[in-house]
């Protein structure tokens, strides 16, 4: 899976990520851990790779990282921010 590239613009500001979704004309933001995942999702990634990114960045247990990555992916999917080929 990876982030949708059409109609979505995003950049990091002070460790958070601000996202402009032109399809819904809304701004969204993530916290620091969300930014870690957003950076990874600029390329095609598996859930395991995203969880590994959280473990590496924050030293949290792998099972917690997996659960948190899955929850965040669900949020992105709900907002239609992932590439449609992944849905």
């Amino acid at each position: 899976m990876k982030l949708r590239t059409t109609g979505v613009s995003w950049r990091e500001i002070d460790g958070e990520t601000v996202i402009l979704d032109l399809s819904s004309s809304t701004y969204l933001k993530t916290n620091a851990a969300g930014s870690t995942i957003m950076r990874l999702l600029a390329e095609d990634r598996t859930t395991a790779e995203l969880a590994d990114g959280l473990v590496e960045a924050y030293g949290i247990p792998a099972d917690q990282a997996t659960a948190d990555a899955e929850t965040f992916i669900a949020m992105l999917r709900e907002r239609n921010l992932l590439d449609s080929a992944d849905s």
């Binding site: 402009l20 809304t26 701004y27 995942i37 959280l54 030293g59 990555a69 965040f72």
Partner: peptide, 24 residues
């Protein structure tokens, strides 16, 4: 770095924030 689970939240609409920026 202290860890908080990833969050995604809406800040507002483009229109709302454009108006705010003027006192896209």
């Amino acid at each position: 770095m202290a860890y908080e689970a990833p969050t995604l939240e809406e800040i507002g609409s483009v229109r709302e924030l454009t108006l705010a920026a003027s006192g896209l």
